[in-house]
């Protein structure tokens, strides 16, 4: 079983549309994981049935029992996150600021503070219209995206893939270079970076690639909207060439992506034959290069 992760650095480059296309092409050969738990969109193209649904708990939050509290103010003094406030008498925890470190609970002289498990989101396993299984999640609004929910999504997808003898796990990663992406990349066998020929696209590609290099994973690149700026497309080609990144394909700027999203289908099902050919070829290249060492 091989794990393929699709990432982008910059948002809005077509990462999810392409991940869903690979999910469509692999059909029952793969388990699909949506690791972009912060703004998970892949399910909008796959008609999942949300067959399995569980609460996801992660981290803790402090809570002060005002019946016991003597208003000594030690918690407020020690908290490094300014997460405790007072009106002079009563003390309370600012939920959005509490990091859950538990320091206040330990030092409260009268034991007025307790730590409570935090519900951080929902976790789902779904059957989809593509005859595969989608492991996905929804982070609670404003929750900490520590990478733990991403790790759970990936772990469950891998477990299912091994149990059901699937060939691939295809993961839609998250944008950026912080904890969720690091969590998406760890343990992967193959990375597809989706970029676009804009100054931002190139800048973010270089940053995310620097991160990918730390993992020593075989890496490939798709340039979406390549004809938007041929000069930057050439610079991206030079960059990936110099880093020995596999160039999978160039995709033209068109409204096919937006139209497909609007219809809730993948770009492969939208009737653009040239687009279908390019993406199918890319998937064949991925399958081939993931298996040679």
């Amino acid at each position: 079983m091989k794990e393929i992760v699709v990432i982008s650095g910059k948002g809005g480059t077509g990462k999810t549309s392409l991940s869903a296309s690979f999910a469509f092409l692999s059909g029952s050969e793969a388990i699909i994981a949506d690791c972009d738990v912060d703004a998970a969109d892949m399910h909008l193209l796959m008609s999942p049935d949300f067959a399995h649904n569980e609460d996801f708990y992660s981290g803790q939050m402090a809570s002060i029992d005002n019946e016991v509290c003597t208003s000594c103010g030690l918690c407020l003094e020690k908290c490094r996150f300014d997460a405790i406030e007072t009106d002079g008498e009563r003390y309370q925890v600012k939920e959005l600021d509490c990091e859950g470190c538990g320091y206040c609970e330990r030092i409260c002289p009268v034991g007025a503070i307790s730590m409570k498990e935090q519900k951080a989101g929902q976790f789902y396993i779904s059957g989809t219209r593509m005859k595969n299984t989608l492991v996905h999640a929804r982070l609670r609004a404003g929750a900490e995206n520590s990478g733990k929910l991403v790790a759970k999504v990936k772990k469950e997808a891998k477990r299912l893939a091994e149990q059901e003898n699937k060939k691939y796990v295809i993961a839609d990663g998250s944008p950026g270079i912080g904890c969720p992406v690091i969590s998406s990349l760890s343990g992967a066998d193959y990375v597809v970076i989706v970029t676009e020929p804009t100054v931002s696209g190139l800048h973010d590609l270089k940053r995310v690639y620097e991160l990918v290099k730390k993992f020593d994973i075989k890496t490939s690149c798709i340039i979406n909207k390549h004809d938007l700026n041929p000069e930057i497309t050439n610079r991206i080609m030079d960059f990936i060439d110099s880093e020995s990144v596999v160039h999978l394909c160039n995709i033209p700027y068109s409204n096919t992506f937006t139209d497909a999203i609007t219809r809730g289908i993948t770009v492969l099902e939208n009737g653009d034959t040239e687009m279908i050919k390019v993406i199918k070829n890319a998937w064949e290249t991925i399958k081939k290069s993931i298996n040679d060492k």
């Binding site: 948002g11 912060d38 703004a39 959005l96 982070l139 609004a141 404003g142 929750a143 900490e144 995206n145 998250s174 944008p175 950026g176 912080g178």
Partner: peptide, 14 residues
């Protein structure tokens, strides 16, 4: 601000 709805966005918009 950064994209998303989790902790970085909270910090950036609070």
């Amino acid at each position: 601000s950064p994209p998303g709805t989790s902790c970085p966005v909270i910090e950036a918009t609070k």
